[in-house]
Amino acid sequence: MTTVGFLYPGHFAEDDYPRMEILLDSTIRLVVHHTESPDGAYAEDALRALGTPGRLAAGIEELQRSGVQSIVWACDGGSFLYGWQGAHDQVAALARAAGVPASSTSIGFVHAVRKLGAERVAVAATYSEAVAERFAAFLRETGVEVTGVHAAGVTDAAEAASWDADRVLELARAADRPDADAVLIPDTSLHTAAHLPELEEALGKPVLTASQVAAREALRLADRPAWAPRLGTLFANREQPPAPVSWGSGRAYAHGKKS
Protein backbone atom coordinates (compact mmCIF):
# COMPACT_ATOMS: atom_id res chain seq x y z
CA MET A 1 0.00 0.00 0.00
CA THR A 2 1.25 3.46 -0.92
CA THR A 3 -0.16 6.22 1.28
CA VAL A 4 0.44 9.87 0.43
CA GLY A 5 -0.81 12.94 2.24
CA PHE A 6 -2.10 16.38 1.34
CA LEU A 7 -2.39 19.54 3.38
CA TYR A 8 -5.47 21.20 1.90
CA PRO A 9 -6.72 24.68 2.89
CA GLY A 10 -10.39 24.79 3.87
CA HIS A 11 -13.25 22.68 2.48
CA PHE A 12 -13.89 23.47 -1.17
CA ALA A 13 -12.95 20.82 -3.76
CA GLU A 14 -11.43 18.22 -1.45
CA ASP A 15 -13.78 15.59 -2.90
CA ASP A 16 -11.48 15.49 -5.94
CA TYR A 17 -9.06 13.40 -3.85
CA PRO A 18 -11.31 10.41 -3.07
CA ARG A 19 -12.43 10.54 -6.71
CA MET A 20 -8.81 10.30 -7.87
CA GLU A 21 -8.13 7.54 -5.36
CA ILE A 22 -10.89 5.46 -6.99
CA LEU A 23 -9.41 6.03 -10.44
CA LEU A 24 -5.89 5.13 -9.34
CA ASP A 25 -4.57 1.71 -8.30
CA SER A 26 -6.40 0.07 -5.40
CA THR A 27 -3.14 -0.01 -3.43
CA ILE A 28 -2.90 3.80 -3.38
CA ARG A 29 -4.39 5.94 -0.60
CA LEU A 30 -4.74 9.72 -0.80
CA VAL A 31 -5.10 11.17 2.70
CA VAL A 32 -6.28 14.76 3.08
CA HIS A 33 -5.86 16.95 6.15
CA HIS A 34 -7.51 20.37 6.13
CA THR A 35 -5.53 23.42 7.14
CA GLU A 36 -6.99 26.71 8.27
CA SER A 37 -8.50 28.92 5.55
CA PRO A 38 -10.21 31.80 7.37
CA ASP A 39 -12.30 33.24 4.54
CA GLY A 40 -11.12 31.67 1.29
CA ALA A 41 -10.26 35.09 -0.13
CA TYR A 42 -8.07 35.31 -3.22
CA ALA A 43 -6.35 38.56 -2.33
CA GLU A 44 -2.59 38.17 -2.57
CA ASP A 45 -1.93 38.71 1.14
CA ALA A 46 -4.67 36.23 2.09
CA LEU A 47 -3.27 33.57 -0.22
CA ARG A 48 0.26 34.05 1.10
CA ALA A 49 -1.03 33.74 4.65
CA LEU A 50 -2.31 30.24 3.91
CA GLY A 51 1.28 29.03 3.54
CA THR A 52 2.74 30.30 6.79
CA PRO A 53 4.81 27.75 8.75
CA GLY A 54 2.40 27.59 11.67
CA ARG A 55 -0.59 26.70 9.53
CA LEU A 56 1.32 24.01 7.65
CA ALA A 57 2.86 22.51 10.77
CA ALA A 58 -0.56 22.13 12.39
CA GLY A 59 -1.51 19.35 9.98
CA ILE A 60 1.64 17.28 10.10
CA GLU A 61 0.90 15.12 13.13
CA GLU A 62 -2.36 13.76 11.75
CA LEU A 63 -0.75 12.86 8.43
CA GLN A 64 2.12 11.16 10.25
CA ARG A 65 -0.40 8.99 12.12
CA SER A 66 -1.80 7.94 8.75
CA GLY A 67 1.63 6.61 7.75
CA VAL A 68 2.08 8.85 4.72
CA GLN A 69 5.17 8.35 2.60
CA SER A 70 5.12 11.88 1.20
CA ILE A 71 3.27 15.16 1.74
CA VAL A 72 2.11 17.79 -0.74
CA TRP A 73 0.99 21.27 0.24
CA ALA A 74 -2.15 21.28 -1.94
CA CYS A 75 -2.45 25.00 -2.43
CA ASP A 76 -1.26 27.08 -5.36
CA GLY A 77 -1.34 30.70 -4.24
CA GLY A 78 0.00 29.77 -0.81
CA SER A 79 3.10 28.47 -2.60
CA PHE A 80 3.89 30.25 -5.89
CA LEU A 81 3.44 33.68 -4.31
CA TYR A 82 6.61 32.90 -2.34
CA GLY A 83 8.61 32.52 -5.58
CA TRP A 84 10.55 29.47 -6.74
CA GLN A 85 13.17 29.59 -3.96
CA GLY A 86 10.63 30.54 -1.32
CA ALA A 87 8.38 27.65 -2.33
CA HIS A 88 11.30 25.24 -1.92
CA ASP A 89 12.19 26.70 1.45
CA GLN A 90 8.56 26.24 2.47
CA VAL A 91 8.42 22.54 1.63
CA ALA A 92 11.92 21.90 2.97
CA ALA A 93 10.68 23.04 6.38
CA LEU A 94 7.62 20.85 5.97
CA ALA A 95 9.76 17.82 5.11
CA ARG A 96 12.03 18.37 8.11
CA ALA A 97 9.05 18.55 10.43
CA ALA A 98 7.26 15.55 8.91
CA GLY A 99 10.27 13.31 8.30
CA VAL A 100 9.09 12.41 4.76
CA PRO A 101 9.63 14.05 1.35
CA ALA A 102 7.42 17.09 0.76
CA SER A 103 6.47 19.31 -2.14
CA SER A 104 3.64 21.60 -3.23
CA THR A 105 1.16 21.82 -6.06
CA SER A 106 3.00 24.79 -7.56
CA ILE A 107 6.30 22.93 -7.69
CA GLY A 108 4.38 19.92 -8.97
CA PHE A 109 3.14 21.94 -11.95
CA VAL A 110 6.72 22.48 -13.07
CA HIS A 111 7.58 18.80 -12.68
CA ALA A 112 4.41 17.83 -14.58
CA VAL A 113 5.19 20.20 -17.46
CA ARG A 114 8.64 18.65 -17.79
CA LYS A 115 7.24 15.13 -17.52
CA LEU A 116 5.03 15.88 -20.54
CA GLY A 117 7.95 17.43 -22.44
CA ALA A 118 5.98 20.65 -22.92
CA GLU A 119 8.02 23.75 -23.76
CA ARG A 120 5.22 26.32 -24.01
CA VAL A 121 2.14 26.51 -21.82
CA ALA A 122 -0.95 28.66 -21.44
CA VAL A 123 -2.25 29.56 -17.98
CA ALA A 124 -5.99 29.48 -17.27
CA ALA A 125 -6.32 31.03 -13.80
CA THR A 126 -9.33 31.76 -11.65
CA TYR A 127 -7.36 34.51 -9.90
CA SER A 128 -7.03 38.23 -10.47
CA GLU A 129 -4.66 39.34 -13.23
CA ALA A 130 -2.00 40.29 -10.68
CA VAL A 131 -2.04 36.90 -8.94
CA ALA A 132 -2.27 34.99 -12.24
CA GLU A 133 0.80 36.83 -13.50
CA ARG A 134 2.67 35.80 -10.36
CA PHE A 135 1.99 32.16 -11.23
CA ALA A 136 3.23 32.78 -14.77
CA ALA A 137 6.36 34.43 -13.36
CA PHE A 138 6.91 31.39 -11.11
CA LEU A 139 6.82 29.13 -14.18
CA ARG A 140 9.09 31.40 -16.21
CA GLU A 141 11.63 31.37 -13.39
CA THR A 142 12.13 27.66 -14.11
CA GLY A 143 12.53 28.13 -17.86
CA VAL A 144 8.94 27.29 -18.86
CA GLU A 145 7.68 29.56 -21.65
CA VAL A 146 4.22 30.99 -20.94
CA THR A 147 2.46 31.88 -24.17
CA GLY A 148 -0.56 33.52 -22.58
CA VAL A 149 -2.40 34.08 -19.30
CA HIS A 150 -6.15 34.38 -18.80
CA ALA A 151 -7.41 35.56 -15.40
CA ALA A 152 -11.08 35.05 -14.51
CA GLY A 153 -11.00 37.41 -11.54
CA VAL A 154 -12.68 35.09 -9.03
CA THR A 155 -12.59 36.63 -5.56
CA ASP A 156 -12.77 33.59 -3.28
CA ALA A 157 -12.45 29.83 -3.10
CA ALA A 158 -16.17 29.20 -2.56
CA GLU A 159 -16.96 30.77 -5.92
CA ALA A 160 -14.30 28.65 -7.66
CA ALA A 161 -15.63 25.50 -5.98
CA SER A 162 -19.10 26.18 -7.38
CA TRP A 163 -17.96 26.06 -11.00
CA ASP A 164 -19.22 23.17 -13.10
CA ALA A 165 -17.52 21.46 -16.05
CA ASP A 166 -18.79 24.07 -18.53
CA ARG A 167 -17.27 26.94 -16.56
CA VAL A 168 -13.93 25.17 -16.24
CA LEU A 169 -13.91 24.42 -19.97
CA GLU A 170 -14.77 28.03 -20.74
CA LEU A 171 -11.80 29.13 -18.64
CA ALA A 172 -9.46 26.69 -20.40
CA ARG A 173 -10.61 27.75 -23.86
CA ALA A 174 -10.16 31.42 -23.02
CA ALA A 175 -6.54 30.78 -22.05
CA ASP A 176 -5.53 28.36 -24.79
CA ARG A 177 -3.17 29.50 -27.53
CA PRO A 178 -2.32 27.65 -30.77
CA ASP A 179 1.37 27.55 -29.82
CA ALA A 180 0.76 26.21 -26.29
CA ASP A 181 1.78 22.57 -25.79
CA ALA A 182 -0.43 22.31 -22.70
CA VAL A 183 -2.94 24.34 -20.70
CA LEU A 184 -2.38 24.76 -16.95
CA ILE A 185 -5.31 25.37 -14.59
CA PRO A 186 -4.06 26.21 -11.08
CA ASP A 187 -6.36 26.46 -8.05
CA THR A 188 -7.08 23.46 -5.84
CA SER A 189 -10.52 24.94 -5.09
CA LEU A 190 -11.73 24.00 -8.58
CA HIS A 191 -13.38 20.63 -9.16
CA THR A 192 -11.45 19.19 -12.10
CA ALA A 193 -10.75 15.49 -11.49
CA ALA A 194 -13.97 14.42 -13.22
CA HIS A 195 -13.49 16.73 -16.18
CA LEU A 196 -10.01 15.92 -17.49
CA PRO A 197 -10.98 13.71 -20.47
CA GLU A 198 -13.54 16.30 -21.59
CA LEU A 199 -11.06 19.16 -21.23
CA GLU A 200 -8.31 17.41 -23.19
CA GLU A 201 -10.69 16.28 -25.92
CA ALA A 202 -12.08 19.80 -26.35
CA LEU A 203 -8.66 21.46 -26.50
CA GLY A 204 -6.81 18.71 -28.32
CA LYS A 205 -3.83 18.91 -25.97
CA PRO A 206 -2.79 17.98 -22.42
CA VAL A 207 -4.45 19.84 -19.56
CA LEU A 208 -2.84 20.04 -16.13
CA THR A 209 -5.06 20.87 -13.17
CA ALA A 210 -4.16 21.50 -9.56
CA SER A 211 -5.67 18.41 -7.91
CA GLN A 212 -4.35 16.11 -10.65
CA VAL A 213 -0.85 17.62 -10.39
CA ALA A 214 -0.90 17.41 -6.58
CA ALA A 215 -1.69 13.69 -6.76
CA ARG A 216 1.06 13.01 -9.29
CA GLU A 217 3.58 15.02 -7.25
CA ALA A 218 2.82 13.09 -4.06
CA LEU A 219 3.15 9.76 -5.87
CA ARG A 220 6.37 10.89 -7.55
CA LEU A 221 7.89 11.63 -4.16
CA ALA A 222 6.80 8.22 -2.90
CA ASP A 223 8.41 6.48 -5.91
CA ARG A 224 5.01 5.17 -6.95
CA PRO A 225 4.32 5.47 -10.71
CA ALA A 226 0.62 5.31 -11.43
CA TRP A 227 -1.52 4.78 -14.51
CA ALA A 228 -5.04 6.24 -14.77
CA PRO A 229 -6.09 7.37 -18.27
CA ARG A 230 -9.23 9.05 -16.92
CA LEU A 231 -6.93 11.47 -15.09
CA GLY A 232 -5.56 12.84 -18.33
CA THR A 233 -2.33 12.67 -20.29
CA LEU A 234 -0.27 13.14 -17.12
CA PHE A 235 -1.37 9.67 -15.97
CA ALA A 236 -1.73 8.08 -19.41
CA ASN A 237 1.32 5.83 -19.25
CA ARG A 238 3.35 3.79 -16.78
CA GLU A 239 6.62 5.68 -17.06
CA GLN A 240 8.98 5.89 -14.14
CA PRO A 241 9.50 9.34 -12.60
CA PRO A 242 11.81 11.47 -14.81
CA ALA A 243 15.52 11.80 -14.17
CA PRO A 244 16.83 14.86 -12.29
CA VAL A 245 17.17 18.07 -14.30
CA SER A 246 17.94 21.68 -13.47
CA TRP A 247 15.96 24.67 -14.68
CA GLY A 248 16.30 28.38 -14.21
CA SER A 249 17.98 29.76 -11.16
CA GLY A 250 16.25 27.49 -8.65
CA ARG A 251 16.63 23.89 -7.63
CA ALA A 252 14.53 21.47 -9.65
CA TYR A 253 13.44 19.26 -6.77
CA ALA A 254 11.26 19.27 -3.77
CA HIS A 255 12.85 18.53 -0.43
CA GLY A 256 13.82 14.92 -0.01
CA LYS A 257 13.33 13.82 -3.61
CA LYS A 258 14.80 14.65 -7.00
CA SER A 259 12.36 15.34 -9.84
Results as ranks from 00 to 15, higher is better:
5 G>R: 03
5 G>A: 05
9 P>H: 09
10 G>H: 03
11 H>E: 14
14 E>H: 10
15 D>P: 00
15 D>Y: 05
17 Y>V: 00
17 Y>H: 00
19 R>D: 13
19 R>W: 08
19 R>H: 12
20 M>I: 04
20 M>L: 08
23 L>H: 06
23 L>V: 01
23 L>Q: 15
24 L>T: 06
25 D>Q: 15
26 S>P: 04
28 I>M: 00
29 R>L: 08
33 H>I: 03
35 T>D: 09
36 E>F: 14
39 D>P: 01
41 A>D: 13
43 A>N: 11
45 D>P: 04
46 A>L: 00
47 L>S: 09
47 L>D: 11
50 L>R: 08
51 G>M: 05
51 G>D: 03
54 G>S: 03
59 G>E: 02
61 E>W: 06
62 E>H: 08
62 E>M: 11
63 L>F: 12
67 G>M: 02
69 Q>F: 01
71 I>Y: 00
71 I>C: 02
75 C>L: 14
77 G>N: 07
77 G>T: 11
77 G>D: 04
81 L>C: 08
81 L>M: 07
83 G>Y: 07
87 A>K: 04
87 A>I: 10
88 H>C: 14
93 A>F: 02
98 A>T: 10
98 A>W: 02
98 A>E: 02
99 G>K: 00
101 P>R: 10
105 T>W: 06
113 V>K: 02
113 V>P: 11
114 R>I: 13
114 R>G: 14
114 R>D: 15
115 K>N: 00
115 K>I: 12
116 L>W: 08
116 L>T: 09
117 G>V: 04
119 E>K: 15
119 E>W: 05
121 V>D: 03
122 A>N: 03
123 V>Q: 08
126 T>A: 13
128 S>Q: 13
128 S>M: 00
129 E>W: 11
130 A>Y: 09
133 E>A: 12
133 E>D: 15
134 R>C: 13
135 F>V: 02
137 A>M: 07
139 L>G: 05
139 L>K: 00
141 E>M: 06
144 V>C: 10
144 V>A: 05
146 V>G: 07
146 V>Y: 03
146 V>R: 04
148 G>C: 03
149 V>F: 07
150 H>W: 14
152 A>H: 13
153 G>T: 11
154 V>T: 15
154 V>E: 05
167 R>N: 05
171 L>Q: 05
171 L>C: 07
172 A>S: 15
172 A>M: 10
174 A>N: 15
174 A>H: 10
176 D>R: 07
177 R>K: 14
180 A>W: 08
183 V>Q: 05
184 L>Y: 07
187 D>R: 06
189 S>D: 04
190 L>Y: 00
191 H>C: 10
191 H>K: 14
191 H>E: 11
192 T>H: 03
193 A>R: 06
196 L>V: 15
199 L>K: 01
202 A>C: 07
202 A>T: 02
202 A>E: 09
204 G>T: 07
205 K>G: 09
206 P>A: 08
208 L>P: 05
210 A>E: 06
212 Q>R: 10
213 V>I: 10
218 A>N: 01
225 P>G: 02
226 A>Q: 13
228 A>S: 14
230 R>I: 00
230 R>T: 12
231 L>Y: 00
235 F>E: 08
235 F>T: 11
236 A>M: 08
237 N>Q: 02
238 R>F: 10
238 R>N: 12
246 S>I: 15
247 W>Q: 11
248 G>L: 11
249 S>H: 14
250 G>P: 05
250 G>R: 12
251 R>W: 09
252 A>E: 01
255 H>R: 02
257 K>I: 06
257 K>E: 09
258 K>H: 12
